[in-house]
Amino acid sequence: MHVSISVNGEQVSREIEPRQLLVHFIRETPDLTGTHWGCDTSNCGACVVQMDGQPVKSCTILAAMCEGHEIRTVESLEVDGQLDPIQMGFHEQHALQCGFCTPGMLMTARALLDENPNPTDLEIRTAISGGICRCTGYKNIVSAVRWAAEYEAAAKQEV
């Protein structure tokens, strides 16, 4: 079947099998292998992308279901060479080690801050609880999200 999906603002059209998972559709798009997968059961969150602004697990969505929807992946965060504050926060606070869960964590955290610009630690922990990180023990991820929230609050005040 033919599908046409908006990925990071660009229309990607392709002939696919109806059974193709969104994560594979994305990863088969040139230069978009930042979205990973780590389990087969919607438990690990490595595959999280945003669908119409909400974080979703792309291993548990058919590509066919996404026509007409906006998909955003980790590759969309940096705009014109300017990192998103959430990317900056992860770097500043050492919130990644092997980097494998990072894209999913970034897309989840970005959506959290879009909805709740000043989350508590518990709200951050809850928001990322659909993702597994084997390296960081989550402590620095929480710090990174807080860092990004504070950065964005400060930036807003400056305007």
Partner: peptide, 19 residues
């Protein structure tokens, strides 16, 4: 010292096996 390897990972530009 902040990490050098972050630059690729936070952009989704790591190259893992399945990539």
């Amino acid at each position: 010292l902040k990490r050098k390897e972050d630059a690729r990972f936070i952009r989704g530009k790591g190259t893992y096996l399945d990539d």
